[in-house]
Amino acid sequence: MGDLDDFYVHTLTVQTLTGTGAMGDVFAAPVTVPGWLEDKRRIVRDKNGQEVVSSSMFACDNAHLPKFTPDSKVTIDGRTAFVIGVANYTSGALDLPDHLEIDLT
């Protein structure tokens, strides 16, 4: 159990972007991830360095990092969003809680 698990009171479903096929984007099967959702608009940079507006930030355990590639599809509270970017916070020898912060459209 992680240090922040008590704060993970929200869940989302993520479908990891795995590539592009003849019919468009291809996504992995949906997976449920516990975490913390903060609905707050802010300007962030996307994978190309362009400024875009993020409508939400989702924090969760670092173990879920491979699931949140840019442009992966996320469903939370009946709303569909896409991953803009991910910040992976690790503390190393400081022994602080490690976590991800995922910016969503």
Rank of each mutant, 00 (worst) to 15 (best):
R41C: 08
L37N: 05
K67V: 04
N88F: 09
S91I: 01
H10K: 14
Q15Y: 06
L104S: 00
R41Y: 07
R45M: 07
N62C: 06
G85M: 00
D6Q: 15
F27I: 00
G85E: 01
Q50L: 10
M23S: 12
S72G: 03
L12G: 01
L100V: 01
G19V: 10
F82K: 07
H99D: 03
G19E: 08
V14R: 07
L104G: 00
S72P: 02
L94E: 11
R41W: 04
T80E: 15
D103T: 02
R45Y: 07
A22M: 13
G35K: 14
A22D: 11
T13N: 15
E101V: 01
D95C: 11
G24R: 10
K73N: 07
T20P: 01
L94C: 07
Q50M: 10
V74W: 05
L96Q: 08
L4F: 07
G35T: 04
Q15I: 01
N48Y: 15
G19Q: 09
A29D: 15
R42M: 09
T13C: 10
L96A: 10
L4K: 15
P34T: 01
L37I: 02
N48V: 07
G49R: 06
K40M: 03
N48C: 12
A22K: 13
Y8H: 11
V33G: 02
I84N: 09
K40A: 07
S91N: 14
A81V: 01
T32I: 10
V33N: 02
S54A: 07
V86S: 03
R79V: 09
K73W: 03
V52M: 12
T90Y: 14
T75R: 15
S91P: 03
Q50G: 08
T18E: 00
